[in-house]
Design a protein around this nucleic acid. Structure first.
Length: 977
RNA sequence: GCAGGAGUGGCGGAAUUGGCAGACGCGCAGGACUUAGGAUCCUGUACCGCAAGGUGUAGGGGUUCGACUCCCCUCUCCUGCACCA
């Protein structure tokens, strides 16, 4: 509710300033939350959706929000989703041109293929025709690409369908049995569904997918120009996850793998992706993801059983279990060896679940000395660790110092002895014989930066990086790396890229974490796809003229319990005829986010039957000047909407490359603060200082345990009256030794701390409610609700009413005069006009309200008569924040017209100037008094007056005046000795 | 673990080119009006101290005539990401 109050206040303010304001409201009502609710209520989602919209609309109107209801839209209305489907067809009918880096119509792609500017690769990918590039001489004989005319119809079709921005794919998807649908990566948090928290498993399935990854670069780069919170931009950049590195080809040693079978190739190559090609010489083993396609082919007979068992174990483990075990590495050796292209070293090939199939190439070169994960793995499986980057001195010192300090002499590792042997010139003792004091002494020595010892440490690192107990992942100077020795990391990367390119064994590569957007949902309550599948399962677009494809009415809309969508039961709806041949409709529906990807455009022109938005109107209003929304949409709605918008922009349907110019996050409102005491099973209270929350692996369940004993303790809520504040925390009044936990929790039904706006508005009125929400503090911050505080705003408003209208209970009417505003009050009024205007503009509503309260208090002090000019100005200033009361005052002042369109008051800069200044006077930085001087007094005049101030004088007597400082119109400061 | 944000009275918060810390609201205390007050008005309210004065913006150090504000270290809380090679 808070964001609505904010948006409305700003909208009203801007209208009074003379702007055209588009301030609409709409309902994004398709999708899982709405459908889950309907299933729970056992009512058709259409019905529950309408009920919820009606209730929401009632609450919003109750608050007096100045929405333009003629622009109201509903994403579940066929007149709306007709255009959602239309935009889907735009995606379906376009592809991403890699040269121009933008979407273009698919017809253009076909044209380019027919003209043989483009050719088709063996995997169906599309490339520039090398013969057009004058490379025929080189590639002519061994051309692996094919020309368009060399493909049969089915192949042509597959190539085109594979290039669309909306395409069908068989990839492994996030199947959520609890919801009976597939989810997008963005909808899965910690291996569970964002909606409902159900487990999610990976499952191959044929799905509609949107090629958002093609836009990864532009989605990341264009963030720079947007006026959004940095944290939100970071979240999007992080999600897009761009990384620059290199791909390196490792040949598999043919002698180490089973001989090739029929139709199999002997010369196998595994390509790995790395961001640190400069560490290639330090690769001591290779790891493939367990799902990697070559795993079974390269596994030797002796290792087969172990490999298969491991693969099976990984496959059955849920995403969540896998995440829970990031500390403890697991994996098995395949028996195969790969050949490092830079030094022809043979390194063992392992499989391990810490390498994910979904990122990079699903295979890594492990450099244990310079990657902590590889280091952990190598340590566990006793694989070699080779240093190829020399760390900075600080790292060497603190790592070695830390290592020595925490050493337990009896179980000191072999490596440690070796490293000490290396440092022998300095350290003669054996590690085993060190006492605790000696450990401390050695740790201090390591930290001291002794030049000789430092040299020894460098030597030790070069030969025994494992002895330092941790990987060095930072940048440094390349060592033990023939081609790039002595180069700093950045240069070493460059140099290595050249070496690899020259050898043909590697190339620069850019990778993204962002995956394509899985767009099908096996649910009922969503937009049907405007797609028909022919007898071979090929997708055909429903002609634009036939849109919308309406959602069939179904009594049983529940998930089927299988992977078949509910729509598969609507037989009449499914079966259609195309060109006299039978075909079926796509039975998946679009996800929750589809409708909200473009609603801001429809608001501009909500009932246009001919276009999704009129082009002229779109140009006039877009982009959105201010978007007030929560950060929870950072990688969902806000990323998806930007993606759709960019596609529409590329295809020339909208005029701006970004939809939302300025965006602010409003903080959520938490429940009332709660106090919690922890007790043992025997109801003995323990201090919260001794309690920590322990999160069980693979679950969200937190248990409170005592730090000292490990005993489980239980929280119990205590009343505010039973606690008091001590110096460093809240304690029980009855037993001040017991600290209690004090915090506010998210509002939730289960916790029972939800505030019902209806009740608050019923008791205090809409204006008070709005004011309270805005007065709580900066809008970005999360704030606890505190019912006790509301009365302050209520008192303020009744004070305003008493001052400007009268006290009806006491039978007094305020007297409005035509007289002059007294000087003091006039100055205060102009100051308030200035401050309120500036504050609202920069969305600081809390301080704007504080300023109005001050002015009202002054008016109250003045007495019974209020000059009309002052009363009118006050009503206008109050109007954006508390519109109902402001309107009534305006009306009582004799205005027939609403003040919603009245002009915002202007302040007179001349009135702000003070004639006398009260300046603070400091002596040696301490405040000793104030001096009153005329505003136009010169420096010397002010300083002379300041010296004579009664409270200042004693501090100057008998001292030497060393310095006199006058900061104009701010303060006076004397330095004495 | 990594990244970002924050830490100011009993509570929500104000003050940022470095210049009177605690605006404004709540709460609390005292008083006025009142049959009554959970209405309204007035006064007070960071802490120690009778006072003079001293101390105070998470803790420690630094720069400065002067630091909530700038620099270094530490702690706590929030938010996001998390085996991303």
């Amino acid at each position: 509710m808070r964001n609505y109050a904010i948006g409305d206040a700003l909208a009203r303010f801007m209208r009074m300033r003379g702007y055209n304001v588009l301030h609409p409201m709409g309902w994004d009502a398709f999708g899982l939350p709405a459908e889950q609710y309907a299933i729970k209520q056992n009512v058709h989602p259409r019905v529950t959706t309408e009920q919820n919209i009606a209730n929401f609309r009632r609450q919003i109107q109750m608050l007096g929000l100045s929405y333009d209801w003629e622009r109201e839209i509903d994403t579940t209305d066929p007149a709306y989703y007709r255009w959602t489907q239309w935009i889907f067809l735009q995606l379906f009918n376009s592809y991403f041109d890699l040269v121009d880096k933008k979407a273009k119509p698919i017809a253009h792609l076909i044209h380019e293929l027919q003209n043989e500017n483009l050719v088709v690769g063996p995997d169906g990918s599309v490339h520039l025709n090398p013969t057009q590039e004058g490379l025929e001489a080189i590639f002519g004989d061994m051309r692996i690409e094919r020309l368009w005319r060399e493909l049969d119809e089915a192949e042509q079709r597959a190539v085109i369908d594979g290039q669309r921005l909306a395409y069908m794919d068989d990839a492994a998807v996030n199947w959520c049995p609890g919801l009976g649908t597939v989810l997008a990566n963005e909808e899965v948090i910690d291996g569970k569904s964002e909606v409902g928290g159900f487990p999610v498993v990976k499952q191959p399935m044929r799905q509609w997918v949107l090629r958002i990854s093609a836009y990864a670069d532009r989605l990341a780069d264009d963030l720079a120009e947007l006026n959004w919170p940095e944290s939100l931009k970071d979240m999007q950049r992080n999600w897009i996850g761009k990384s620059v590195g290199a791909e390196v080809d490792f040949d598999i040693d043919p002698a180490s793998i089973p001989p090739a079978g029929a139709g199999e190739d002997d010369g196998l190559t595994v390509t790995v992706y790395t961001t640190r090609p400069d560490t290639l010489y330090g690769a001591t083993y290779m790891v493939l993801s367990p799902e990697h396609e070559l795993v079974l082919r390269i596994t030797s007979p002796g290792n087969r059983a172990a490999v298969e068992a491991y693969r099976a174990a990984v496959a059955t483990r849920s995403e969540r279990d896998r995440l829970a075990e990031t500390k403890d590495k697991s994996g098995v050796f395949t028996g195969a060896y790969a050949i490092n292209p830079v030094n022809d070293e043979k390194i063992p090939v392992w499989i391990a679940d810490y390498v994910l199939m979904g990122y990079g190439t699903g295979a890594i070169m492990a450099v244990p000395a310079h990657d902590q994960r590889d280091f952990d793995f190598a340590t566990k499986f006793k694989l070699p660790i080779k240093a190829v980057v020399m760390p900075d001195d600080g790292w060497l010192k603190s790592t070695m110092s830390g290592k020595w300090k925490t050493l337990e002499p009896r179980i000191a590792s072999e490596e440690m002895v070796m490293s000490v042997a290396d440092l022998n010139d300095v350290v003669r003792e054996k590690v085993e014989e060190w006492s605790a004091e000696e450990q401390d002494r050695m740790a201090g020595l390591a930290q001291s930066g002794d030049g000789h010892l430092l040299n020894e440490m460098r030597r030790a690192y070069r030969n025994h990086p494992e002895a330092f107990g941790a990987a060095f992942a930072g940048e440094g100077i390349a060592i033990n790396s023939l081609a790039i020795n002595d180069l700093a990391t950045a240069e070493a990367k460059e140099r290595m890229a050249h070496v690899l390119a020259a050898e043909g064994t590697g190339r620069k590569a850019v990778k993204y974490k962002l995956r394509d957007w899985i767009f099908s949902r096996q649910r009922y309550w969503g937009e049907p796809f405007p797609i028909i599948l022919d007898a071979s399962g090929n997708p055909l677009a429903v002609p634009e003229a036939e849109l919308p494809v309406t959602l069939p009415e179904m009594a049983d809309f529940r998930p089927t319990g299988t992977m078949d969508p509910p729509l598969s039961k609507a037989k009449d709806w499914i079966n259609v005829t195309v060109d006299g041949k039978p075909a079926v409709r796509e039975t998946n529906t679009m996800p929750q986010w589809a409708g909200s990807c473009w609603y801001y455009l429809r608001f501009i022109d909500p009932s246009n039957p001919n276009r999704f938005v009129d082009a002229e109107k779109e140009k006039y209003w877009m982009p959105v000047d201010l978007y007030v929304g929560g950060a929870e949409h950072a990688v969902l709605h806000l990323l998806y909407a930007r993606f759709w918008h960019k596609v529409l922009f590329d295809l020339g349907h909208v005029s701006s490359p970004e939809p939302f110019q300025r965006l602010v996050n409003q903080g959520t409102i938490l429940g009332e603060p709660e106090y919690t005491v922890f007790e043992t099973a025997e109801k003995r209270a323990v201090s919260a200082a001794d309690v920590e929350m322990v999160y069980e692996a693979a679950s969200d369940v937190a248990e409170a345990k005592m730090k000292s004993s490990g005993e489980t303790v239980f929280p119990r809520r205590v009343d505010e009256a039973d606690v008091e504040r001590m110096k460093d925390g809240w304690v029980l009044k009855a037993d001040p030794g017991i600290r209690v936990d004090s915090r506010s929790y998210k509002m939730s039904k289960s916790r029972g701390n939800v505030v019902n706006p209806d009740q608050v508005v019923g008791e205090y009125g809409a204006d008070t409610f709005r004011l309270y929400e805005m007065y709580m503090g900066p809008l970005e911050a999360q704030k606890p609700w505190n019912t006790r505080d509301i009365v302050g705003m209520s008192r303020f408003l009744s004070g305003v009413y008493r001052n400007l209208v009268g006290d009806e209970e006491a039978g007094k009417t305020a007297t409005i005069t035509d007289g002059q505003i007294p000087d003091d009050l006039d100055r205060q009024m102009h100051r308030t006009i200035k401050k309120v205007g500036e504050d609202i503009e920069s969305l600081r509503f809390n301080t704007a309200i504080a300023e109005l309260i001050k002015l009202n208090n002054e008016i109250g002090r003045m007495g019974a008569e209020v000059p009309r000019a002052l009363a009118e100005t006050f009503a206008l200033l109050l109007a954006p924040l508390a519109p109902h009361l402001a309107e009534e005052i305006w009306n009582r002042l004799g205005h027939g017209e609403s003040l919603a369109r009245a002009a915002w008051p202007k302040f007179d800069a001349a009135k702000l100037v003070e004639t006398t200044l009260e300046l603070p006077v400091q002596v040696n930085g301490k405040l000793r008094g104030t001096v009153s001087v005329p505003a136009d007094a010169g420096e010397e005049q002010v300083l002379e007056a300041a010296v004579l101030v009664g409270s200042v004088k004693p501090w100057l007597e008998g001292k030497t005046l060393a310095k006199r400082i006058y900061v104009p119109k701010k303060l006076v400061s004397f330095v004495v000795k």
